[in-house]
Every structure is written in C-alpha cells, then in structure tokens.
C-alpha cells in the first residue's frame, strides 16, 4: 500500500475506508495561501476530467476539507497531492 508523509505543522490528514470510497479529512493549521492554492489545483484536476465520482471535494469552515475518493482513484489522488507539494513523501510499503 501507499504510505505518505506531510508537514504536520501545516496540515493534518486522516482517512477512513467506507464501502467503495476512502474518505479523507484535511485540516489546515492556518490560512496558508500556497496550501489552499495546491488543494484548489488538486480539485481542478479531478473536476476537469470526465469522471464525475472519482474525487469529490467538500469545503467546511475553519480550513477543513472532506474529500471522498473512489477506491480505484486512491493512488491518483495521493499522487496528485504529492504533485501539488501537499505531501512531502510517498512510498510503496513492502506488503504491496
């Protein structure tokens, strides 16, 4: 499986599996424009493709985002977070 690391001082990421989806919660520590812009680009990437249920973004107050990711798009989503520099590392662990 994929393991990822991020700057814990800037954001907090948690995930939970739910039937065919993985639900991410991303909470930003502060109103950091570069992270917000990065998240916006991630959203844009999945909004602009022709699949409507791959990655769905929901924005909450206090810099909180809920993101429902279809299981078959999990890797694409994590890699997109990495591409937009919201993650610092991504690696495959041995059990895969």
């Amino acid at each position: 499986m994929l393991n990822y690391g991020y700057d814990e001082a800037a954001l907090r990421i948690s995930e939970s599996a739910n039937e065919n989806d993985v639900e991410f919660r991303i909470v930003l520590a502060a109103d950091d424009p570069s992270i917000i812009a990065g998240l916006k680009r991630v959203r844009q990437e999945f909004d602009e493709n022709r699949v409507y249920t791959d990655v769905l973004f929901y924005h909450y107050p206090d810099h909180e985002y809920k993101i429902i990711v279809r299981k078959d798009y999990y890797v694409d989503f994590v890699l997109e977070l990495m591409k937009q520099r919201l993650l610092q590392s991504v690696e495959w662990t041995a059990d895969r």
Partner: peptide, 9 residues
C-alpha cells in the same frame, strides 16, 4: 455532477 456530489455526501 452536482447531484453525484450531494448524494455521495
């Protein structure tokens, strides 16, 4: 697309 988003939620 918006319907998918709300119903998934």
């Amino acid at each position: 697309p918006v319907t998918f988003s709300i119903t998934r939620q």
